Measured scan of single mutants.
Amino acid sequence: SPISQSQFIPLGEILCLAISAMNSARKPVTQEALMEHLTTCFPGVPTPSQEILRHTLNTLVRERKIYPTPDGYFIVTP
């Protein structure tokens, strides 16, 4: 029987999409709110552990794709 394939999207890209959507909705993007958003909006995607989430967010900050503030994470705009 054929095996169904799913699209692979890197966690960093999913986080950027989620942060962008939450920023547009003016929702604060904390790590907890981000986990909740991922569970709700990406039900088929396994939720990352806190450690993996933190590591991926730090990587995105180093890559200058997002930036942290006391009010949460935001997408870097050119």
Rank of each mutant, 00 (worst) to 15 (best):
36 E>M: 08
73 Y>W: 10
60 L>H: 01
10 P>E: 10
25 A>Q: 11
32 E>C: 04
17 L>M: 10
76 V>M: 14
23 N>I: 02
1 S>G: 03
52 I>M: 15
5 Q>P: 05
25 A>K: 12
29 V>F: 03
68 P>R: 12
39 T>F: 07
8 F>L: 05
71 D>M: 09
66 I>Q: 00
27 K>Y: 05
69 T>D: 10
49 S>Q: 03
14 I>A: 12
52 I>Y: 15
70 P>Y: 08
19 I>L: 03
7 Q>G: 15
69 T>C: 08
10 P>A: 11
47 T>K: 13
47 T>R: 11
65 K>E: 04
48 P>F: 05
59 T>F: 13
33 A>K: 11
42 F>R: 12
11 L>C: 01
31 Q>A: 09
9 I>N: 15
57 L>F: 02
39 T>W: 12
11 L>P: 02
37 H>Q: 08
74 F>H: 03
8 F>M: 06
54 R>V: 11
26 R>N: 13
66 I>E: 00
4 S>C: 11
7 Q>P: 11
49 S>V: 01
50 Q>H: 11
16 C>V: 08
38 L>N: 00
76 V>N: 14
17 L>Y: 10
11 L>I: 07
16 C>M: 10
71 D>L: 06
76 V>D: 06
59 T>L: 15
58 N>L: 11
41 C>E: 12
7 Q>V: 08
60 L>S: 00
11 L>W: 01
30 T>N: 02
2 P>R: 13
29 V>N: 00
64 R>C: 05
51 E>I: 01
4 S>V: 09
72 G>A: 02
74 F>A: 15
11 L>G: 02
22 M>D: 01
10 P>N: 15
13 E>F: 02
23 N>Q: 06
8 F>V: 08
11 L>A: 03
19 I>E: 00
63 E>K: 13
52 I>R: 07
20 S>M: 06
44 G>A: 09
35 M>H: 13
71 D>K: 15
62 R>S: 08
77 T>R: 15
61 V>N: 01
59 T>V: 14
66 I>N: 00
62 R>Q: 15
55 H>D: 15
61 V>W: 06
23 N>V: 05
59 T>P: 00
70 P>Q: 14
77 T>D: 15
35 M>T: 11
41 C>P: 01
35 M>A: 13
76 V>P: 12
32 E>D: 07
10 P>H: 06
75 I>S: 14
43 P>H: 12
17 L>Q: 15
78 P>S: 10
43 P>Y: 06
28 P>G: 05
76 V>Y: 07
63 E>F: 04
56 T>Q: 09
23 N>A: 05
52 I>H: 13
35 M>Q: 08
33 A>D: 05
38 L>Y: 02
20 S>F: 01
26 R>D: 12
5 Q>H: 06
41 C>Q: 02
68 P>V: 15
14 I>Y: 06
48 P>L: 03
51 E>W: 05
17 L>C: 06
66 I>C: 13
78 P>M: 02
32 E>G: 09
39 T>C: 10
10 P>F: 10
13 E>A: 12
59 T>G: 13
38 L>E: 00
55 H>I: 06
70 P>M: 07
67 Y>Q: 11
70 P>S: 13
26 R>T: 12
30 T>E: 05
37 H>C: 03
65 K>T: 10
17 L>E: 14
13 E>M: 04
40 T>D: 08
56 T>A: 09
38 L>K: 01
78 P>D: 01
66 I>L: 09
41 C>V: 09
63 E>N: 10
54 R>D: 02
52 I>S: 05
9 I>V: 13
54 R>C: 04
36 E>A: 08
34 L>F: 01
28 P>Q: 15
29 V>P: 04
